[in-house]
Computed example of a mutant assay.
Amino acid sequence: MYQLMKVKADVRQASDKVSALIGQRDLLRKQKEEARNRLEAAQQELNNYDLVQILLQKTSEYARQQAKKQIEDIVTSALSVVFSKDYRFIVNIEVKANQPVAEYWLESEGVTTQLKPPDYDRGGGVADVVSLALKLAVGELSGVRGPLFLDEAAKHVSQEYVQNVAFFLKEFGQKFNRQMVLVTHSSVLAEIGDTSIGIRQANGKSIVETI
C-alpha cells in the first residue's frame, strides 16, 4: 500500500514538473512572438523614416523646403487629431557629407524633444502615428497616384485613440482625393470604409463577406 501511494505521489510530482515546463515553454514562445512583432514594427518605422530621407535627397533646395512644410503639416495634423493635444512635428534638415539629412523633433506643451525611430517610450502610440503620417505624406509628395495600401495601420495606438485614427484617415482621404485600402483586425478602422470586406475561416475554408 505504501509503495503504491509513493508511486502515485511520484507520478503527481513528475506531472507537476512537466506542467511547469510546458508553461515555461509557452511563455517563452509568447515572448519570442512579441519580440518578433516589436522587431517588425520597428523595421517598418525605420523604413518610413528612410523614405523621407530618400525623398529629400532627390529634390532641389526649394522643393525640399516645400516638402518639409507639407510633411510637418500632415504629421502635426495627425498627432493633433488623434491625441487631441497641441503637438507640433518639426523636420530639421542639415547637409552632411553633401547629402541632406533630416532630424525629427516633437514639440508638446512647451517641451521639444528629438524623436528617434523606433521610439516606443511615448504613451498611446505617438511614434506609430508619426510613422503612419510620414507614409501618407511621402505618398502625396512622391506624386504616386492610385490607392494607398495600409497594412495594420497604427496597430500600436492605444484603443482609446483608434477612433481618432479612423477619423483622421477618413478626412485625409477626402482632402487629398486619395483612395485607401486598409488591411486591419480593428473593427473600428473597418467601419470607416465605404466598403468593408471581412474574411473568416470555417471548416478550413476562407469565407469572404461584406460587413
Rank of each mutant, 00 (worst) to 15 (best):
Q3D: 03
V7Y: 01
K8N: 08
A9W: 06
A9N: 06
R12T: 09
K17F: 06
K17W: 02
S19K: 15
S19P: 00
L21Q: 14
I22R: 14
G23M: 07
R25I: 15
L27S: 09
Q31W: 04
E34S: 09
N37T: 08
N37I: 11
L39A: 14
E40F: 09
E40C: 05
A41I: 08
E45V: 02
N48L: 12
N48V: 03
Y49P: 01
D50E: 11
D50G: 04
L51W: 07
Q53R: 00
L55N: 02
L55S: 03
K58W: 02
E61Q: 10
K68W: 03
K69R: 14
T76G: 15
S80M: 03
V81P: 03
V81I: 11
V82K: 11
V82E: 11
F83L: 12
K85C: 05
F89K: 04
V91Q: 03
I93F: 02
E94M: 05
V95R: 12
A97G: 02
A97R: 07
A102R: 01
A102L: 00
G110P: 12
T113P: 02
T113S: 10
T113C: 12
L115T: 10
L115G: 13
P118Y: 13
D119C: 06
G123R: 09
G125E: 07
G125S: 12
V126F: 09
V126Y: 02
A127H: 08
A127W: 01
A127V: 10
A127T: 07
V130N: 04
S131F: 06
L132Q: 09
K135D: 06
L136R: 06
L136A: 08
A137K: 02
E140F: 03
E140T: 08
L141Q: 04
R145P: 01
P147G: 06
P147F: 07
P147A: 08
L150G: 06
D151G: 04
E152V: 09
A153D: 02
A153T: 00
K155G: 01
E160A: 07
E160Q: 08
V162W: 00
V162M: 05
Q163F: 05
F168E: 05
L169D: 04
L169R: 13
F172L: 00
F172Q: 00
Q174E: 14
K175C: 01
N177P: 03
N177R: 07
Q179V: 13
M180G: 11
M180L: 15
V181H: 14
V183R: 10
V183H: 05
T184L: 09
S187K: 11
S187I: 02
A190R: 05
A190Y: 04
I192P: 03
I192A: 11
D194P: 10
I197A: 11
G198C: 09
I199E: 08
I199N: 13
R200Q: 13
N203C: 09
K205Y: 14
S206Q: 12
S206L: 15
I211Y: 06
